[in-house]
Design a protein around this nucleic acid. Structure first.
Length: 629
RNA sequence: GCCUACAUAGCUCAGACGGUAGAGCACCUCCUUGGUAAGGAGGAGGUCACCGGUUCAAGUCCGGUUGUAGGCUCCA
C-alpha cells in the first residue's frame, strides 16, 4: 500500500507517482505539480516505494508555485538556447516573486529578443515536453558539458561533492544540471511573463564576467499573473520619487548627486517626525547632543573607521590637516562621554543625536531617498553595566514598537546577527551579549531569525526591516553592541569597588535614516499622509473669492492660531477646480465656505477620501481633528 | 564602480526617410463670482543634458561626458 494525500492505493513495482494518480485520481493528476516524501520534495515521475506516505501539491500551494517558477526558468533557458545556440547557461533560481536565469551571451538582450524568447517559451509549453530526470556520475557530467562548451556548468559540477550523484533534467532536446524537482510536463506552465533584463556578475562577484540576466515570473493562473502585473503598476504609482515630485516634497539636482534638496512641504514631514521623536526620547530618559560633522583624521584612525570604512568616507583639508566628514556619529559621542568622569550610579546613560552623516555610495546604488550619500541618522549610544543589557535592549525595542505603531507599519522583520569569524573582544562577552539580545526579544515575545556569523566585527546586533511598495525590504532600526569603541577610546566608569571599569555600549537607530524613512512613508501612505504628518492639513476654499473671503480669512486665522497647517485658496477659480487641485495635492481636509456657512458661522467639511461630511461649527471641527491626532 | 536603456518647455509626453521644434497641464493677462474632481479667450516660455565628430544641413547619425532608470555589488 502507498498513501497519497491521505488516500490508500495498492503498491506496484516500478510505477511512478504520476501513473498512480493517472489511474486513480484523474482530477489531481491534471493539476499535480510536485510531491513530497517525508520532508523531501520529489518529482512526480519518482517511482513509488511500498508503504510510503506521499503528499502531492498543485500550483495553488507554495511548493507547487515554486516548482512552476523553477521549471519556467528552465524553459526560458531552453528557449534562449533554441534562439541563441552560442549562449552559455549558468544558473536560474526561484526568487521572491518569480525567477531569473543568467546567460553568458555576446550581446545583451534587447526588449525584442525578450519578446521572442517569451514566444519561444510558449512553443515549448505547447509542445508539452516531459521533464525527464536522469542521473550521471561526476565524470560523465563534466564530459557531457565540456563537450557542449558549457563552462559554467562544468565549474558548478566540479564543486559538487565527489561522491554525489548528479541529476539532470531534460525537456525536449535541452538538458540542464539541476537538483530538481520539476513540473512533470512543460504544459503545466500556464501563466508566465518575462519582465526585464539586466547585467549581473557571475557568482555576484564584480571581478567576474558580467552575465545577462532575464527576470520573469510565473503564477498558477492567468488571473494571478495579471493581478501581480497590476500590483507592479500600482506600485509604480506609489513610487516615492514620483510622488515626491508631484507633491513637491523634495528634489535631486545634478549639482549634488545623492544629496537631497528638501522643499518646504518635505521639510514639514521631517520636522514632524523629529518632533515626535524628540518628545518620545525625552520621555524615555534620553539626553540629546550634537557633534561636528567634520573631525580630524586622527580621530577616525583611532575609531577604526579609517582602516575599515575609508572607501566610503569623504576627506577634506583644514589648515593643511586632513579631516574627514563623519560617516557615523559614534566617535563624536565617545569624545563627549570622555569629557567627564562617570560613576556606575549614572548608568544607563542614554545619549541621542540626530546626526548628519555622509557616506560615499557607488553611483549605481543611489535610489531616490532610499539610498543617498548624505542623511540624518536618529542615533543614540547607551552606556551601561553588563547587568543592564537586557533591560536596555527591551527599552529600545519598546521604543521601536511605539514608533512603528504610530507610523502604521505592521510588516516588521527582526533578525539577530551573531559573532562572525573575524571578531574582536573575547568569546565570553560575545556569548553574554548574544544571550542578552535573545533574552530581550524572547521576553517581549518577538519572532526573529538568526543570521549566524553575520554580526559586525565589533559586536552582535538586532536589525529591523520594513517593506516598500514593491515589497523590497529596507533596514531601518538597528541595535548593535559594540565592544570595540569603548576600548579604543578608553571609556571608563568608576564601579562599586571604586575601580575603573569598561562600560558596555550599544548603538541604536530607530528611523535609521530620516530620508529613507520618509521614502518608505510616502509609499506606505501613497502620499496620503495622516493628519499629524500632512504638510498641509486643511485647505479653506471659498465658493466665491469675493463674497466669502472675509469669513474665510477669519476661519483661516483661527486655525492658524491653533497651530494647524492651513492654506486659504482665495484664487478666483471655480469651486470644482479648486477642490480638484486640493484633492490631487492629497490634503486631508477641505473646508468649503459659501453663503450658508457665512450665515451660520460654520464650515462645510470635505475629506480627501470620505467626501462631503456636511457643515459643522468650527468648534465641532476642532473636536473632530483632536480625536484624529 | 559594472551591464543595459533613456535624456525635447516647470510637469507628462509627440516629433517616419537628417531640412534649424509641438500638444496637454502648470504659469501670466483679460472675461466669468461659480456649491463638492478641470468655465472661456489670449500670451509668454525650449542653445532639444553637455562636449566633440560626420554632413551643405543634426533634436534626429557617430563618439565621449554627465545625469536618471532597472539590475549586479554594497549598505541606514
Amino acid at each position: 500500500m502507498i498513501v497519497v494525500n491521505g488516500n490508500e492505493y495498492p503498491f506496484k513495482e516500478g510505477v511512478s507517482l504520476l501513473s498512480i494518480l493517472k489511474e486513480h485520481n484523474k482530477s489531481l493528476f491534471k493539476e499535480a505539480i510536485v510531491a513530497k516524501e517525508d520532508d523531501k520534495l520529489i518529482d512526480l515521475s519518482t517511482l513509488v516505494s511500498d508503504g510510503v506516505n506521499y503528499t502531492v501539491f498543485t500550483a495553488e500551494s507554495p511548493e507547487g508555485l515554486e516548482t512552476i517558477r523553477h521549471s519556467a526558468a528552465h524553459i526560458m533557458a531552453q528557449a534562449v538556447k533554441t534562439l541563441l545556440p552560442e549562449a552559455k547557461v549558468t544558473i536560474g533560481p526561484v526568487i521572491e516573486n518569480g525567477f531569473f536565469y543568467d546567460f553568458d551571451v555576446e550581446n545583451p538582450f534587447t526588449p525584442e529578443q525578450i519578446q521572442k524568447i517569451e514566444k519561444e517559451m510558449k512553443k515549448h509549453v505547447q509542445a508539452n515536453y516531459e521533464f525527464h530526470r536522469t542521473v550521471m556520475s561526476r565524470d560523465e557530467a563534466v564530459k557531457h558539458f565540456e563537450a557542449l562548451g558549457e563552462i559554467y556548468k562544468v565549474e558548478i559540477i566540479k564543486e559538487l561533492p565527489e561522491d554525489q550523484n548528479i541529476t539532470f533534467y531534460k525537456q525536449g532536446d535541452f538538458i540542464d544540471l539541476c537538483r530538481g524537482p520539476h513540473i512533470p510536463f512543460s504544459g503545466r506552465l500556464k501563466a508566465f511573463k518575462l519582465l526585464n533584463a539586466a547585467g549581473a556578475y557571475w557568482r555576484g562577484d564584480e571581478k567576474n564576467r558580467m552575465l545577462q540576466r532575464i527576470y520573469g515570473t510565473a503564477f498558477s493562473t492567468k488571473e494571478e499573473l495579471d493581478q501581480y502585473l497590476n500590483f507592479l503598476e500600482e506600485a509604480k504609482k506609489r513610487d516615492h520619487r514620483k510622488l515626491g515630485k508631484e507633491l513637491d516634497l523634495f528634489s535631486f539636482q545634478k549639482e549634488g548627486v545623492g544629496f537631497v534638496f528638501w522643499h518646504p512641504k518635505g521639510m514639514t514631514l521631517r520636522n514632524q517626525l523629529i518632533q515626535f521623536w524628540r518628545d518620545l526620547h525625552e520621555e524615555s530618559g534620553y539626553v540629546e547632543i550634537n557633534t561636528p560633522i567634520i573631525l580630524n583624521k586622527e580621530l577616525w584612525i583611532k575609531s577604526g573607521h579609517y582602516a575599515n570604512y575609508k572607501e566610503n568616507m569623504y576627506f577634506t583639508q583644514i589648515d593643511e590637516m586632513e579631516h574627514a566628514v563623519k560617516p557615523m556619529n559614534c566617535p563624536g559621542c565617545m569624545l563627549f562621554y570622555n569629557t567627564s568622569l562617570h560613576s556606575y550610579r549614572e548608568f544607563p546613560i542614554r545619549v541621542a543625536e540626530l546626526g548628519l552623516v555622509h557616506r560615499h555610495e557607488r553611483s549605481g546604488t543611489l535610489h531616490g531617498l532610499m539610498r543617498v550619500r548624505q542623511f540624518t541618522q536618529d542615533d543614540a549610544h547607551i552606556f551601561m553595566l553588563p547587568s543592564q543589557i537586557t533591560t536596555e535592549i527591551k527599552g529600545v525595542v519598546n521604543l521601536i514598537e511605539t514608533i512603528f505603531k504610530k507610523l502604521g507599519f505592521s510588516d516588521v522583520n527582526v533578525e539577530i546577527s551573531t559573532r562572525p569569524a573575524k571578531f574582536i573582544g573575547n568569546i565570553e562577552d560575545w556569548d553574554t551579549a548574544e544571550a542578552a539580545l535573545k533574552q530581550a526579544l524572547d521576553e517581549l515575545n518577538y519572532n526573529y531569525e538568526i543570521n549566524e556569523g553575520d554580526g559586525a566585527f565589533y559586536g552582535p546586533k538586532i536589525d529591523f526591516s520594513i517593506k516598500d511598495s514593491l515589497n523590497r525590504r529596507w533596514q531601518c532600526s538597528t541595535i548593535q553592541l559594540d565592544f570595540a569603541l569603548p576600548e579604543r577610546f578608553d571609556c571608563t566608569y568608576i564601579g562599586e569597588d571604586g575601580k575603573k571599569h569598561r562600560p558596555i555600549m550599544i548603538h541604536r537607530a530607530i528611523y535609521g535614516s530620516i530620508e529613507r524613512l520618509i521614502g518608505i512613508l510616502i509609499e506606505e501612505y501613497a502620499g496620503k499622509f495622516p493628519l499629524w504628518l500632512a504638510p498641509v492639513q486643511m485647505k479653506i476654499i471659498p465658493v466665491s473669492s469675493e463674497k466669502h473671503l472675509e469669513y474665510s480669512q477669519e476661519v483661516y486665522k483661527r486655525l492658524k492660531n491653533s497651530k494647524f497647517r492651513v492654506e486659504l485658496d482665495d484664487r478666483g477659480e471655480k469651486l470644482g477646480y479648486k477642490i480638484r487641485e486640493a484633492q490631487l495635492s492629497k490634503v486631508p481636509y477641505m473646508l468649503i465656505i459659501g453663503d450658508q456657512e457665512v450665515e451660520n458661522q460654520t464650515v462645510a467639511v470635505r475629506h480627501r477620501e470620505h467626501g462631503d461630511l456636511g457643515s459643522m461649527s468650527l468648534f465641532d471641527f476642532f473636536e473632530k481633528l483632536s480625536s484624529e491626532l
